[in-house]
Computed example of a mutant assay.
Amino acid sequence: MRHGGKKKDSESTQIERERGNVCENCKAKLTVVYDGFNFVVQTFIEEHTHPLATPSRVHLLRSHRGVSDTKIKLVKKFSNVNIPLYQQFELLETQAGGHESVGFIERDLRNFERDEREKIKGRDAEMLYEYFKSEEDKDSDFFFKFETDNNNRMTRCFWVDSVARKAYTHFGDVVVFDTTYNTNRYAMIFSPLVGVNHHGQTTIFGCGFLSNETFDSFVWLLETWLEAMKIAPTVIITDQDQAMTKAIAQVLPNTFHRYCVWYILNKFQEKMGYFAHHNYYALFKTAIWESETVEEFEKSWYEALEISQPSSKEWFEEMYKLRGTWIPTYVKQYFSAGMSSSQRAESMHAFFKRYCSKSNSLMDFVTRFNRALAHLRHEELVADHGD
């Protein structure tokens, strides 16, 4: 308890958080002075004006709590592997032999992480830029580009290392491009470009952060990526985002743009209606996946339409007009590395979200991304070794 009493401002209208009284005007104290030769007790008043903390509560006193440097290092390692804070504290409790032996409480840990976030507040993009510059110094083939607005806030960035650029020269015929949310606290849109290697494993061809999904943003990202890679892919697979479609047509005019089959099929129930989907969806699946010729597909497609009478005929007419971009029998002349949809990118997003969360700073995200990327590349090494 503190010496002195708590002052009250009767004129204040500010609502304060309820908290325990830590000022008891207690006179108990111990004063020690150094007389030039020894430390000497100058004052000792033993009597307290309040009950003392019981042994079971001593570890809760602020004077007895503190996150040590050793614990800080351990907590940072836990955070690097995306262990939630409450589980971090449970691990520390287990290691210490009980919560009373940890040295602090869970709130102290939350306050520490809050203070760490405050340290980089307003400097996150600057730190990321400095990190990319240091990577560029270490790796002459590391490539990155930043773009900022009038307030010097990052709006777009792209990066790719030498390993990914080399992989692209071998496996870059087919690229899957998709975006995802909830990977960082600024709601920047994570935009990886991925493909498959000689083991059928996912490989990364570069990544970007975008502040929005507009035509201009996609043009910037694709042009920057092409600047790094030099050669355009033969095929690119995406969903049906219109801004992305227009950007690809402008930046990659000689690349065949294939739409994701999985993305389109997922809309069938909505566009058919529940009853029609339940009873006749199998007819469309047969037409899409089992037709070996264009004529066979068209015959099966029209029969399925005639029988099912879907609720949104306009959408099915639009999908039929676009059949040359997503129906297997129309696109089979293009090498697609066994990929017919952007599910490769979707599974990649799910993989990265095991390492990242929407509370990450940009620098946190890239640190965790690099660890996930190292895992992917080690899996390729293991497969190579098995060969």
Rank of each mutant, 00 (worst) to 15 (best):
G206R: 12
R153S: 01
L193F: 14
E136Q: 12
N184Y: 08
A167L: 12
V194G: 06
R156W: 01
D141R: 14
R153V: 03
F218P: 00
Y168M: 03
L221H: 01
C207S: 15
T183Q: 07
F132Q: 13
D149Y: 01
L222P: 12
F205M: 09
N150V: 00
F190D: 10
E223K: 14
Y186K: 04
T169S: 14
W220K: 04
V160I: 15
R165V: 12
R156Q: 04
C157V: 11
D216L: 04
N212M: 01
V174E: 02
M188G: 03
F218G: 01
W159Y: 07
F146I: 11
A164W: 07
F142R: 08
Y186M: 07
W159R: 06
H199F: 07
D141V: 04
W159F: 11
D173E: 04
V196P: 03
T203A: 08
D149C: 02
L193W: 07
F146W: 04
A164T: 08
L210R: 09
E135G: 13
E136G: 04
D173S: 02
H199D: 01
D178T: 10
N150T: 05
E227K: 15
C157F: 06
D139P: 05
E136H: 08
I204P: 09
T169A: 11
F171N: 09
I189M: 02
K145L: 08
R156A: 00
D161Q: 13
F171H: 12
L222M: 15
V174G: 00
T224K: 08
H199C: 03
V219G: 00
T202E: 09
T180G: 04
H170D: 07
A187W: 07
W225H: 15
A164Q: 14
K133V: 11
D149A: 00
F190N: 08
D216N: 10
A187C: 13
Y168D: 07
D141E: 15
W220P: 07
D139V: 07
H199T: 06
N151P: 00
